[in-house]
């Protein structure tokens, strides 16, 4: 009984903070609200008996991915002008159509769910059980996920490289590269 009550509280927290996150003008505020939403999700995970998932949610989702967002926002250094932009861009009237679409979608899913059966008692599924499953039947998925991460890594590196390293034009960079190559060749010859 207690857990059920806790579940509803955590669910409402997650819900409210998500709504707030989507409607803020300031990007950093929206980010913080999102983190709160993720924490609420983590609690829900723990309550249904998936402590490993809860830990992972906080560690990786809130702790790494959101921090990445924080870094980028801070790097862009938008400041007050960002807020003013958002004031101009985000007008209340724009919420009408999307909300209608989302409400309809929600209604459909609710209907579908209402025709299902009730859940039974659930046991806790600990990390050990997850590990055995993961490196047993699902080991292929692990390998593929690692390749995906590699691709993401390379892509992020390439996309971010020019911005991080320098802002010179492509032609200048090419000339410098050619000059370096010539010097290397001459160096070898000598």
């Amino acid at each position: 009984m207690l857990e059920l009550g806790l579940f509803y509280i955590a669910a409402s927290v997650a819900l409210i903070s998500t709504i707030l996150s989507v409607t803020r003008y300031n990007a950093t505020h929206a980010l913080i609200y999102l983190i709160i939403s993720l924490l609420g999700s983590a609690i829900i995970f723990y309550l249904v008996g998936a402590p490993f998932a809860a830990a992972l949610e906080i560690l990786i989702y809130a702790g790494a991915i959101m921090v990445l967002f924080v870094f980028v926002i801070m790097m862009l250094n938008l400041g007050a002008s960002g807020d003013n932009q958002e004031h101009r861009w985000l007008q209340p009237g724009m919420w009408i159509l999307p909300s209608m679409l989302c409400l309809v979608l929600l209604g459909e899913i609710t209907y579908i769910l209402s025709t299902g059966n009730h859940a039974l008692a659930g046991n806790v599924v600990g990390p050990k059980a997850v590990g055995i499953e993961l490196f047993g039947p699902y080991v292929l998925a692990v390998e593929i996920a690692s390749m995906l991460l590699l691709a993401g890594l390379v892509g992020a590196y390439q996309l971010g490289r020019r911005y991080m390293v320098d802002v010179r034009e492509d032609d200048d960079l090419e000339k410098e590269a050619d000059a370096d190559a010539d010097r290397d060749v001459e160096g070898d010859a000598v």
Partner: peptide, 16 residues
């Protein structure tokens, strides 16, 4: 994005 969501809504409605 909006068009995609609208399409999704229509398809699900048809299936339902």
């Amino acid at each position: 994005a909006a068009v995609m969501v609208a399409g999704l809504v229509i398809i699900i409605s048809i299936f339902l």
